[in-house]
Design a protein around this nucleic acid. Structure first.
Lengths: 347, 347
DNA sequence: TTGAAAGCGCTAACAA
DNA sequence: TTGTTAGCGCTTTCAA
């Protein structure tokens, strides 16, 4: 301990810092006004305050370093001024970028973001949603790991919820996502059409669902459009390691595909490493393209050709949707953008 | 308004769904007890309740789907069961990993994490700290962008705060960080001692401080230990682009250094790209090493030699410190680990 | 233009 | 073991 405690009973000593924060009553007293006036000044309404009075109040606020107690305001107004965000893993660059976008959009509205990771576990996700809801978040954004058939409709009393990163509709929920089928189609079509590949593998997560994943669908559609049989599909986890293992597998095949479509930036990161480790060059020996297109993909070598999700726009829309309590059961789909860089073979 | 108000005086009509959430008073009425008893049951204390009474209360809670109002509890108790985390940018892989570690540690204690990004702006950071504090977070973890001389002591009433990612003491604050000077020393010493480099450049952020940055200090010390004059220092922003620009600059020098020490993984990511783009190979043409060592560094090619921060351990310690209201003004320093991979020239 | 005061829902000290 | 009640700090209606 290098600091010394102030002597407790000495009244005339320079005032020791008060143990508690200044309240609106302290400010009112210091400014010689009522607490209502302080409120009017702080909130710039709902009543007008004479400029001179307002100045006095502001001076008192500054002098006391007063800052309103959000918990009290939240109780009084019945809103927590907070949105909840549930993602599978904040360490994944896609979700990190999503979190940043949500945070930026939220802070523009004076809202805080409560962040929770489901660890890609549906049960954890459910608990987290209930927990956040009971905290009266003004809105709940969830990137669910559960397929529609495993996501029960929101229980009564749940806060307004919107599913983000949802590439298809979820009955009973508002959902927002990129058009992943089209995104997958675009980037695979580029490989097939522009570069003349005939064999492209897909690396994607394990299928836990009845319906085909949209990226898988777009992948297959691109082949169909070119009159080709669909390429092989490798299922693995959505992680760097997953992408790494998948490529190791693919590179060991007798007939190695000319290109691979990675269904996420994170998998692509692992894939690059496996290719390099095998002493191969991208795109000369094998072309790599991906879905997501976070800033990560721009800094791999060679820079990665991707279908990019409009993360910022989707985050903004998600927030607007959940705060405006839009009709449930609809699905807002955002177009992806084909970003051609070098990993596909383009110069 | 689609709901109809209950007819006020009709006692026997089937109760229409209440327009508002049930409160503790509703539960008390339904169970025929006082609100205090409901509190005791909900919180399992601080007074004992007769089993039979408790059962009645629990039945009423279930029947009314009552869930406590967190804002009210938070106001009353001065605690929100939430910790605040302020980082410069959640999109940076280091902070994403830190956020994940904090979130994991917090959820083990039943705490939620409120996340806020300062955008590397000291004023925003200050506001965010005040905002989070006024929400009665139980603890505040801040990765400050301000040097000690620009970080005023916590104002009265501020919640317990600990600075994370702090590589030196901050007067008036508890601070936790890795021993960056030693980490920098280790990795530069490896370059100098094992690989026989004589010229190593440092890429680091702009210096806004009086004291030398610890990484810069460690960098210089390593040269001194080898009887060498310190290498050149390039100051840029802490971002991928910063690292990219810095390497472009370095590669244009007449006497190109044999190796570069990047002071963060993020800068290293940009650096790799600049090296590749120049048609150079790492480590043959120029060796690259970095500080931070997030999982990112493992998946670059070649895999990056780094001094790795023990992020999970530091996050856990930060939470323990802030919740235990440890003495201020101390500095917990964690050792980094030299992780030798390939970018330094090791096989 | 300003002030007084009634709660928002909850906890816990105090009383019974 | 249970009930009564005084606030926590704030917003806002109502009165002056």
């Amino acid at each position: 301990m290098t600091t010394t405690l102030p002597a407790p009973e000495v009244q005339d000593a320079p005032a020791p810092a008060p143990a508690r924060a200044a309240t609106r009553a302290d400010v009112a007293r210091a400014a010689g006004v009522s607490t209502a006036v302080v409120s009017y000044v702080v909130n710039e309404g709902p009543r007008r305050v004479a400029p001179h009075t307002a100045a006095r109040v502001r001076a008192a606020i500054a002098a006391l370093a007063y800052s309103p107690n959000v918990a009290a305001r939240s109780l009084r107004k019945g809103s927590s001024e907070m949105v909840g965000l549930v993602v599978p893993d904040i360490g994944n660059p896609y979700f990190a970028e999503l979190a940043r976008a949500v945070e930026v959009a939220a802070s523009e509205q004076g809202l805080l973001v409560a962040l929770a990771s489901s660890q890609a576990d549906g049960d954890v996700e459910r608990e987290l949603m209930a927990e956040l809801s009971s905290r009266n978040v003004d809105g709940l954004l969830v990137s669910t790991v559960r397929p529609p058939e495993h996501l029960p409709p929101p229980p009564p009393g749940h806060r307004p919820t919107v599913l983000v990163n949802a590439s298809r509709p979820y009955p009973g929920y508002a959902a927002i996502g990129a058009d992943a089928a089209q995104g997958a189609y675009d980037v695979v079509d580029h490989l097939l059409g522009v570069h003349g590949h005939t064999s492209v593998a897909l690396v994607i997560g394990a299928s836990t669902e009845r319906l085909p994943e949209p990226r898988e669908e777009g992948f297959a559609n691109a082949f169909a459009a070119h009159g080709l049989p669909p390429g092989p599909v490798v299922r693995t986890v959505f992680s760097r390691t997953g992408g790494y293992e998948a490529l190791r597998r693919i590179l060991s095949w007798r007939h190695r595909p000319g290109a691979v479509f990675l269904s996420s930036d994170e998998q692509a990161s692992g894939a690059y490493r496996a290719v390099r480790e095998a002493g191969l060059e991208c795109p000369e020996d094998i072309a790599l393209v991906a879905y997501d297109g976070t800033s990560h993909s721009e800094f791999s070598w060679p820079p990665m050709t991707v279908s990019r999700q409009p993360i910022a726009a989707m985050a903004r829309a998600a927030l607007a949707t959940v705060l405006g309590s839009s009709p449930v059961g609809n699905h807002q789909e955002f177009a992806t953008e084909l970003v051609v860089r070098r990993s596909c073979g383009c110069p």
